[in-house]
C-alpha cells in the first residue's frame, strides 16, 4: 500500500492535526516505512478467524440505573481554557 502525500494531509485533517508542508514530508516518509513493516501482515491467511477485540472472552457487566454523581462543575471547570456562566466556550460553531 503506497501512501501519498495527499493521504497524509487527509489523515491529518481527519485527526485534526495541523500539519505544515515540511512536517507532511517527514510524516510521509516515516509513515511509509511503518506501513512497510505493517505490510508483513497482509500475507497471512486469516480466513475463518474470528477477530479479537478484547483480551478476555467475557461479556459486558451492567450498572444499575441509579444516580451516583453529584454536581462538581466548579472543580471540573477549573481546568477549562475558557468558561462563562457555566458554559465551556469555543469559537462560534456554524452549521
Amino acid at each position: 500500500m503506497l501512501l501519498s502525500i495527499d493521504d497524509v494531509f487527509k489523515i491529518a485533517r481527519l485527526a485534526r492535526l495541523g500539519l505544515t508542508e515540511d512536517e507532511a514530508q517527514i510524516a510521509h516518509s516515516q509513515l511509509s516505512s511503518i506501513f512497510g513493516l505493517i505490510a508483513e501482515m497482509q500475507a497471512v491467511d486469516t480466513h475463518g478467524i474470528e477477530p479479537m477485540s478484547h483480551a478476555q472472552d467475557i461479556s459486558q457487566r451492567l450498572r444499575e440505573d441509579t444516580v451516583t454523581e453529584t454536581n462538581q462543575r466548579e472543580l471540573f471547570q477549573s481546568a477549562a481554557p475558557q468558561v462563562k456562566n457555566g458554559l465551556y466556550l469555543v469559537p462560534q460553531v456554524i452549521e
Binding site: M1, I11, L14, A15, L17, A27, I34, M41, T46, I49
Partner: peptide, 29 residues
C-alpha cells in the same frame, strides 16, 4: 502525532478490513 495518524489511517474508509480487521484476526492467532 505519528501514531494518531497511523491509527486514523487504518480505521478509515476502505482500509479497515485490510488493516484493522486483519490485525485483530492475527491477534487471535
Amino acid at each position: 502525532k505519528r501514531r494518531i495518524m497511523i491509527g486514523t489511517y487504518v480505521l478509515s474508509h476502505g482500509y479497515y478490513d485490510a488493516y484493522y480487521l486483519q490485525a485483530q484476526k492475527i491477534r487471535r492467532l
